[in-house]
Amino acid sequence: MDDALWDRLPFEARAEVDELIAVRRHVQAIALMRERIGAPRPSIHDCVDLLEWRAKVLRG
C-alpha cells in the first residue's frame, strides 16, 4: 500500500479514522478521509484501499 494518502491526512484525523474502523463504521471513515485529506480530493476507491490497509494494520 502506498501510504502517501495516509500521510496527507492530518494527524488528528488519522486517530478518528482508526477509531471508526475499529467500530466498523467504514462509510463514516471513508467520508472523513475524503473530507479531511484536502485537494486533490481522493477517490472513493482510493479511500476504500486505504481503509482496507488500515484495518489490516489495526488487526495486527
Rank of each mutant, 00 (worst) to 15 (best):
E19Q: 14
D49A: 09
L20E: 02
M1D: 13
R54D: 00
D46S: 15
L50M: 04
P40R: 08
P10T: 00
I30R: 03
H45Y: 10
G60E: 08
R24T: 07
P42F: 06
E35Q: 15
E19G: 15
R54H: 04
D46Y: 01
V27D: 08
M1G: 13
R54V: 02
P40D: 03
E12Q: 12
F11A: 15
H26K: 09
I37L: 09
G38V: 09
L20T: 03
L32R: 02
A4V: 10
L50K: 00
H26Y: 15
L5G: 03
A13E: 09
P42K: 05
K56Q: 14
W53V: 01
F11R: 15
V48T: 09
E16Q: 14
M33N: 01
A13K: 04
R36A: 14
A4E: 15
R24Y: 12
Q28I: 12
M1H: 11
D18G: 06
L9P: 00
D49R: 12
A29F: 02
R25G: 03
L32F: 02
A22H: 04
I30P: 06
R25Q: 12
R41F: 06
R34I: 08
G38N: 06
R8W: 06
L50S: 00
A4P: 00
G60W: 05
I37V: 15
D49N: 13
E19D: 14
I44L: 10
I21G: 01
E52W: 09
L51K: 05
W6F: 13
L58A: 01
E19S: 15
M33T: 04
A4Q: 13
H45D: 12
V57N: 07
M1F: 12
M33E: 01
L51V: 09
H26F: 13
R8H: 04
P40T: 07
L20F: 08
P42A: 11
D49K: 11
K56I: 03
P42T: 05
G38R: 11
A29H: 01
A31T: 10
L50N: 00
P10S: 07
A29V: 03
A55N: 04
R36F: 02
C47E: 00
D46K: 07
G60V: 02
P42W: 04
L32V: 12
R36Q: 13
L50G: 02
A15V: 11
R34C: 10
R24M: 10
A4M: 10
D46L: 02
A13Y: 02
A15G: 12
I44A: 09
A4F: 07
V57R: 07
C47F: 00
L9G: 01
A39F: 13
G38A: 08
A15N: 09
V17M: 02
R59M: 07
A31S: 12
A13I: 10
E12N: 13
A15S: 14
A31H: 05
V23I: 11
L32K: 04
